[in-house]
Each structure stands twice: as C-alpha cells, then as structure tokens.
Computed example of a mutant assay.
Amino acid sequence: MTRSQLILVLAAVALVVVLFQLPRSVVENEQVQEVVETESHSMEIPQEVENQINELRRLIREEENIDKKANFAHSLARHYLDYGVVDSAASYAEAMELWVSSPSELVADIYFTAFERSPGPEQAKEYAAKAREVLQQMLDKDPINLVVKNRLAMTMVVSENPMAGITLLREILEADETNRQAILNLGLLAIQSGQFERAKERFENLVSMNASDHEAKLYLAVSLMEINQQSQARLLLEEILATQDSIPAIKIMANDYLSGL
C-alpha cells in the first residue's frame, strides 16, 4: 500500500488503514443454514485455516445451542476478516442477529471490523451503520463502556453527523486521558483533515506511553513526512522494520513508506 493510498483511505473511512486489499479473491457459495457467503477481496487462505473454517461450518450446522452456535459463527467470521473476506464475515453477523434476541458484542465486533477492513467507502459506510445500531444499543445498557464508545464514535464519523463522533472521542479522553484507542482515533482524524502537527502530537503521546506501539509509530512517521521531517520519519520506519514483534501488515506499510523516502 502506497503513501497516497493510505491518505485516501483515511480520508474516505477515517479509520485504521485498510490492510487487506490484496489482488486475490475467495468466492464462497456454500450455504450454511440461512447464511449465504458472498464474494470478497481477500488474501489467500492457508490450508490449515481453511480446515478450521470447514470445521466451524460443520459445528454451526450441527449445534442447537444458540450461544454456542453464535460463538462458532463469530470465530468463523473472524477467520474471514483476518483474510479480507469481509462480505462472508458480515453474512454471519446478519445470521447471528436472527439467532440472538439482545444486542450482541459478537455481532458488533464483526460489523465493526468489517467496517474497518472494507475495500471501499460505500461498503464501509454500510457496515458502519450496522455496527452503529448494535453499539448504540450496547451503550444504552452500559453508558460507561469506553470500548463501545470508541467504536461507536468511529462509526459516527462516517455518518451524516461526523462531529458527533469527534465529540464522543473527546468525552472519552475527559473520562480517561490515557485511553489509547481514543488518542489513536483522534490522531487518524487529524491526518484525515490535514492537521499533521496535531496528529504528530497525538501519536507522540502514544509512543511516549508505550515505546512498542508500532502502529502509533507508523502513523507518527506519516505525520512527520507530511511536515517535511523525513529524517525522523525514516528512523521510526527503520525501528518498525527492525522489530520482531511488529505485525506483518504494519511492516509492509513501513517498508513501502521507507522505499518512498
């Protein structure tokens, strides 16, 4: 993913970079009870994971206990999300909504992650709306849940009232000034709106809180590049690439940025 693509994605979705737009696709046509899996852009799924997927499909078909069925469906959807098969993952969230009677954290998790990893802004808005509905119901029941508030805020950013999402993020920081996700989200929104100095401050804060936060380091490097501090950005990108525990997708993007310097 190139630097220009990253900025475009942030502008369209105002979220973490879409990491899963790779050139292969998986077409899922098998019907699992009322679940119909659909085509999505994805990475190639390793055989070991494919075996786990097939086993989870079997368990979903055969399980009669609703809670267990929902857990199996969530696990299966997470596999799909890990490999970019977003539509198929979302189809299981839709099925789970039919199975369970109350707002489900598992359903919200699938929709929200589908929102984050959607291959385009229109699909992202669709899943954001579905996630927002479930998250709002959850927040109504538990108004101090900051994890739910963070997710709800980011779905609001792509709604007709984006300032409501930003206001909610600021409320989170008033309650917890070190809340990583709220700081990260506000930093990404600062990049999206071209406020690179403000973004730099947000990500520097995160790195000072946790020097091993490679995601924050990546976005700090992006912010530094935008304000012509390439030498500092280079050092951060080299740190990410030299670290064993940085996730592969972050390393891929760090390498792309470094190659462009």
Rank of each mutant, 00 (worst) to 15 (best):
L236G: 06
R3Q: 12
E197G: 07
S88F: 03
V27A: 11
L258F: 04
V158M: 06
L152I: 02
V26Y: 05
I7V: 04
V207D: 15
L220D: 01
L237H: 01
S4D: 14
L258Q: 00
I166F: 02
S42W: 11
D142L: 08
E105M: 07
S259T: 10
E44C: 05
N161F: 00
H214F: 15
A175I: 08
F20Q: 11
N185Y: 13
V148N: 00
A114F: 03
V9Y: 02
N179C: 03
H214Y: 15
L237Y: 05
E48D: 15
N54W: 10
A11M: 08
E201N: 10
T155M: 00
Q123R: 01
E37R: 09
A12T: 07
L186I: 08
L8W: 00
E201I: 11
Q137N: 08
P23L: 09
R132W: 00
S246R: 04
Q5P: 00
L186F: 10
A11Y: 05
M163F: 08
R117W: 14
R61S: 14
N255P: 00
L186Q: 05
L189E: 06
L81S: 11
A14P: 07
V207W: 14
V17C: 02
I53Y: 07
L220R: 04
L236M: 11
L59A: 10
P103R: 08
H41R: 10
I183T: 15
Q229N: 09
V18I: 12
V134K: 11
L139V: 03
R202Q: 08
V222L: 14
V26D: 13
G84N: 08
Y219G: 07
R3A: 10
R202H: 15
N210H: 13
K217P: 04
A242W: 09
K217W: 00
P103D: 02
S4W: 03
P23Y: 03
I166E: 08
P162F: 13
K200M: 12
L235A: 07
A182N: 11
I191G: 03
A164W: 08
L10D: 15
L146Y: 01
E239V: 05
S259A: 13
R78C: 04
L81N: 11
T178C: 02
N150A: 09
